[in-house]
């Protein structure tokens, strides 16, 4: 059953009570929280996701709840619990949804070592995936949000998961994290965008999340073969530039974005080398989303031409 098929009040009651089991890509998360603002944001942004009733297994058991002290009334806070342990300091209650997203990322990064994981977005079109790797603040999520609202499928905004067995990028479509000016940029670029509550004054500034396209969520079990590795960077006023990047340096740069490359040892090197072998790598600088989308669409055309001529 999709979450949007459950009415809001029932969902909030379940979230407060026995919890809800939310399926995101390969992961099942059991979430409990009495915080209604969090429940409303989840109901809004995860509406197309599948929820199950009492499945036998959950990868992550998490709770977000307020401390049982005076802080409930004065500048209320929220704690994140993973298996009943609180690994992080509390955050303001108004940041609850952002905290949920960050902490779910943390659960995956710290637990899902059966995938090679990178801090990167992944998008797909025509069965081919582009891995967009960049440090925070590079405009990666804005670019991803733009592309997935212009024909590309979202596999992931934050965490690229690569199956070590077959080298496929594994889908993990979830809300796209937008920061600061990007929130308004995407509101203008995607007039019907569904954007959740803005968490202000976080460590990353103002943060809001964009609801992922329904098609991306519906195809959350459909992997894609990486074909491009792209290192994007937003530069205000810059001329668009799309420069081929040496494969060897691309591997090192991508490994820098990986969470568990070193844990895999030589196997990590082999997986990464195979991935880079079959990909074209580029450094990409952009200042306008429309231009960026044209460039990405031309990738597919070039690829199709190469396939026809070979």
């Amino acid at each position: 059953m999709k979450l949007s098929q459950i009415n809001l009040s029932t969902f909030l009651r379940d979230l407060r009570g026995h919890g809800v089991w939310l399926r995101t890509g390969p992961f099942q998360t059991h979430l409990k929280s009495p915080i209604n603002s969090l429940g409303r944001a989840i109901h809004l942004l995860y509406g197309d996701f599948v929820v199950e009733e009492n499945p036998e297994f959950a990868d992550f058991h998490i709770q977000l709840r307020e401390p049982k002290n005076w802080r409930r009334f004065y500048r209320p806070q929220v704690y994140f619990y993973f298996d009943d342990q609180a690994p992080f300091k509390p955050m303001p209650r108004s940041h609850a949804f952002a905290m949920f997203e960050w902490c779910l990322n943390w659960c995956i990064e710290s637990q899902a070592n059966h995938y090679l994981m990178m801090h990167a977005a992944v998008i797909e079109r025509g069965g081919l995936a582009a891995i967009l790797a960049a440090p925070p603040g590079s405009g990666k999520s804005t670019l991803t949000a733009g592309l997935v609202n212009r024909g590309w499928r979202l596999l992931s905004d934050e965490l690229a998961l690569v199956d070590p067995g077959n080298g496929m990028a594994v889908p993990l479509a979830r809300p796209v994290s937008l920061k600061n000016q990007s929130i308004e940029v995407i509101r203008k670029f995607v007039p019907n965008a569904v954007i959740g509550p803005i968490a202000r004054d976080t460590i990353k500034g103002s943060v809001a999340h964009l609801k992922p396209p329904q098609d991306s969520v519906d195809r959350n079990r459909e992997g894609a073969l990486p074909r491009w590795v792209i290192f994007p960077r937003f530069e205000a006023g810059a001329q668009i530039s799309f420069t081929p990047y040496p494969k060897s340096t691309a591997l090192l740069r991508l490994a820098d974005h990986a969470f568990n490359y070193s844990q895999y040892g030589v196997k990590g090197f082999e997986i990464m080398a195979k991935l880079i072998d079959r990909c074209d790598a580029y450094e990409f600088i952009y200042s306008r989303l429309d231009d960026a989308i044209q460039v990405f669409d031309s990738l597919l055309i070039c690829d199709a031409r190469t396939m026809v001529s070979s």
Binding site: P246, K247, S248, L251, L252, V266, F269
Partner: peptide, 23 residues
């Protein structure tokens, strides 16, 4: 044990003892 990957004139080598990849 050294593991090699060569693209054009650039060589990557993975050192299994240190776990480091060198260009």
């Amino acid at each position: 044990t050294l593991h090699w990957k060569i693209w054009d004139d650039q060589c990557l080598v993975f050192n299994s003892a240190s776990g480091q990849t060198h260009l």
